[in-house]
Write a protein that binds this DNA or RNA. Structure first.
Length: 260
DNA sequence: CTAGATGTTAAGGT
DNA sequence: CACCTTAACATCTA
């Protein structure tokens, strides 16, 4: 589930496997994943070059290479896989980078909702898309309040809006709301100063713990609601059956007793 | 067979 | 301008 913590793990994976190696060949198996660049241009930009470093903003991963940056976004289903043996090539590999050491990096995207692009600088992309500050690296409690102040609509919608804060998706938004004990359908205008502080603190804790757990829900702390997000899921705090709610077209889960 | 799944965006409405 | 809902995208699974 490629939200901020997942993409942070992909970043570390790319850093640990693919930096400073010359690229021998690039193949795009499905042009639908390309955004603002065609296959030939992308191949020209990458071939013979090396990834120098990476950065992440929200759910976007950038890798500096040659005269610009490769941008990777994963949609609802996507990940990276570094491998050597052709038998390990994942199903639904949409782009494929072969390094001179014979290892390969696959961009896997089953549902084709992810995108690969090329930007001169990450900041250009971030401002063009009007993305908010990164939820993990670029916020503090004061700024967080200011981002949400004066907004209308439900809290969950605002938190999931990438133009407000970048990186939170459906699952982690539910987790943050649960940990802060605030209901997803609370109007932003009704959120108290105390609740804003709790939300900010939960956002930091949840994202940090998720990254520590390698974004794997099986390794999340016991108090997390994420592993219980399902029809018969129960609140890990009070045991009550979770409620399902649709906000901004997405299914959210929350505990009606613990979250007010 | 159908509904729903981690994301984003366009279109149309309030 | 801000926000809402719905649909669409493509594919797999419960």
């Amino acid at each position: 589930m490629p939200e901020l913590p997942d993409v942070e793990i992909f970043k570390r994976y790319l850093d640990a496997t693919s930096l400073h190696q010359q690229i021998e060949k690039v193949q795009v198996h499905h042009s639908r994943i390309l955004s603002g660049v065609n296959q030939k241009t992308l191949q020209n930009f990458l071939t013979g070059e090396k990834f120098e470093k990476t950065s992440r903003h929200g759910k976007h991963l950038f890798a500096k290479i040659g005269g610009g940056w490769l941008r990777l976004h994963f949609g609802m289903t996507g990940y990276l896989k570094y491998y050597k043996n052709e038998t390990q090539k994942p199903w639904h590999t949409r782009m494929h980078i072969r390094f001179c050491n014979d290892f390969q990096l696959a961009y896997v995207n089953q549902r084709l909702l992810g995108r690969v692009g090329w930007v001169e600088k990450p900041e250009d992309f971030i401002s063009r898309k009007r993305l908010g500050p990164d939820a993990l690296n670029d916020t503090d409690c004061h700024r967080f309040k200011k981002l949400l102040a004066g907004r209308k609509g439900f809290l969950k919608s605002a938190l999931m809006n990438q133009k407000v804060i970048a990186g939170l998706g459906n699952v982690y938004t539910d987790e943050i709301l649960f940990q802060a004990r605030v209901a997803p359908d609370k109007p932003v205008e009704d959120v108290s100063a105390k609740e804003f502080a709790a939300l900010f603190k939960s956002m930091q804790t949840v994202l940090c713990k998720a990254v520590e757990a390698k974004a794997n829900p099986e390794q999340f702390p016991k108090r997390f609601i994420t592993p219980h997000r399902s029809k018969d899921g129960r609140c890990p705090r009070c045991g009550r059956k979770l409620e399902k709610i649709t906000v901004a077209g997405r299914s959210g889960y929350f505990c009606p007793r613990c979250q007010v």
